[in-house]
Design a protein around this nucleic acid. Structure first.
Lengths: 353, 353
DNA sequence: GACGCTGATGTTTACGTAAACATTCTCGGG
DNA sequence: CCCGAGAATGTTTACGTAAACATCAGCGTC
């Protein structure tokens, strides 16, 4: 291990009142190294034209004083913050937190930090507030992980030149969108159940306001209609396992229901529990498919067949699209779809005859 | 009504290359309103001493030009960023994402934004890099949601005056710590099982490097020893449901094992699956307790008895402790423990006789 | 009616950095 | 032996904001 000499810091007592200078600036380093602050700047940025001996002196002074560049001054100078804002309702949904994680990781690799801007409840007012604050925030662009259609009116408050990418929502052709291919995922799920021989498929949808929920539901309906199958009444949950449980209890009472497509894995988990409690065996009597492929889905009872979403890829593409805008490369509104894939486990089977 | 001359906006074509000025500054507003930029500043900050008519003129000019304060300049001026950094390994763990969400929400309420600093793998090098970058980041303080003991050596690179709060880890008396009362939670879990009449309790611990895992395991051991019960060999997982499943398969083979305390809910889920596959009924033959009380725990089969962690409270206290440091209020190293509480559901029962 | 006080507003300056421009110095060629 | 090129380094300035200080007008007082 490398032994590091503790720097001789100005003690608080050096200055009456204990108010020691907080930051070490280039000027301090320059003074100690006996050069101009511009030379320090050149060393800090690796600019050419600094002779080796000078560079070493400066570096020594830097480490002695513990110099750290001041990012506020840098941002002011450059007019850029190297920061991306992420506006979201919450991290409680697994999809959100994994997307945010991917965004953070990929952004870090590109030299950008990310700032989280949580919006309390999905009300117009709150979103508007977040957008207003955003204008003052130290960010070069924003990724929206919210239901954008909630804020038609709020849109006017967006700074005109703002760089924006929208995830998993409808941007009404105003901004580029990165999205999981929800419709295709739902189609795969429903077709899988029909291919197994089920006459039709029930659907447990997400809440009415959600764009993802709507797209999954409409793809479900479309597949059934194209196949000429009856379309059962839609069940609705709120993404939670509890709501899935309640819907599951309702469906368990219908003996004709042999296949259920839940709009996310958590609701599917609730459905599994309800079916179990009602003594309906999965997959022998009822098949269940989820959506998301959360980490635990393979450990449900039984392991859940579900639609895998590549959240990491979504995060990566968001960052790429946003950086392209920030760097003035051509980008138009339009949707970039990330493929989904059906993961078949043990919760689906052919119906009993 | 005062007639306001329409602002002579620099059109893109004014400058070759279409590079129009990005931001509207106070000087622009001042020019349009016919006042000095200082007056604009006063209006922007609600300082007194601006006559009503002037204020209105300035406000009109602001909204006409779409003025937004430049936070880089503000930060430079004030020496503060109003931003908190959060260093973490990832958001994949439910605890982390819920803690981060609480931090973000509470920080926002206090006027602080939060910046996420993800650290790839928990290696010394990566953590060191994050700490180094942190020094250059636009943050006033940092919350560490990582295993701090990994970075004894890295500590030297922390800027001496840095404000730090550590979550769920051991700070070695260097920084204030906010933590769930892991030991007490584990004690409640084990005592609950003993109280039900189980002779002893098996423990499925988290990975060896984890401080949380160690504390839960040592509390488990302590309760058993105090009660004079035999201490079964420790099983180890990696927090994942899969690792819980594998451990569960091992334990299912031991008929004397009637009570299992898993160090988190995901591993408990895996244990439930393994027991189910091996035909051991829960809770009739084997009782299982988890830790965390994730949102889905009530929907497991059977609904899981588990230790509830108040992540929101942890997040709140982190932010409070950090802001206290930033505002120079007295804070010492020391651990602030957030209470846990056992949530009894359907996965535990008295052993069969 | 001159004095000074108060309130409204303007001017200067500093925050830390880095581009643009200026200065010094060295060294090779005529 | 002097000139000029180019390398190394220094000086000035601007980025946007806001504190500190300066100015100025109006008004009440003696």
């Amino acid at each position: 291990m490398i032994k590091i000499e503790p720097p001789r810091l100005r003690a608080s007592s050096d200055v009456p009142g204990g108010r020691r200078k907080q930051r070490v600036s280039m000027a301090d380093v320059a003074r100690l190294a006996g050069v101009s602050s511009q030379t320090v700047s050149r060393v800090a940025n690796g600019s050419p034209g600094v002779v080796e001996t000078t560079r070493e002196q400066v570096l020594a002074a830097m480490s002695e004083l513990g110099y750290r560049p001041n990012s506020a001054a840098r941002s002011l100078r450059y007019g850029r913050f190297n920061t991306i804002g992420v506006i979201l309702f919450g991290l409680s949904s697994i999809g959100n937190s994994r997307t945010v994680e991917a965004i953070a990781t990929h952004a870090a690799a590109e030299g950008y930090a990310i700032t989280l801007i949580p919006v309390g409840a999905p009300t117009q007012d709150n979103v508007l507030g977040a957008f207003t604050r955003m204008g003052e925030l130290a960010v070069d662009g924003v990724i929206l992980i919210i239901e954008v259609h909630l804020l038609d009116a709020a849109a006017v408050t967006l700074p005109p030149g703002a760089h924006v990418v929208v995830v998993d929502s409808d941007a009404g052709d105003r901004y580029p969108v990165v999205d999981t291919d929800q419709a295709d995922g739902a189609r795969q799920a429903v077709r899988h159940l029909l291919d197994l021989g089920h006459r039709t498929v029930w659907h447990l949808a997400g809440p009415a306001g959600s764009f993802s929920a709507e797209r999954r539901a409409s793809a479900w309906r479309q597949v059934l209609e194209e196949a000429g199958r009856p379309v059962p009444a839609l069940e609705r949950g709120d993404w939670s396992a509890d709501s899935g449980y309640r819907a599951g209890l309702r469906l368990a009472g219908d003996p004709s229901c042999t296949a259920i497509f839940a709009a996310n894995d958590q609701m599917a988990l609730g459905v599994l529990r309800a079916l179990h409690e009602r003594g309906r065996r999965v997959p022998a009597e009822v098949s269940v498919v989820g959506f998301d492929d959360v980490a635990d889905a393979g450990s449900y009872l039984p392991p859940l067949t579900t639609v895998h979403q590549d959240f990491a890829e979504v995060g990566r593409r968001c960052v790429d699209a946003l950086l392209r805008q920030i760097h003035d490369e051509p980008t138009g509104p339009g949707t970039d779809l990330v493929a989904t894939r059906l993961v078949i486990r043990a919760s689906t089977a052919a119906p009993e005859v």
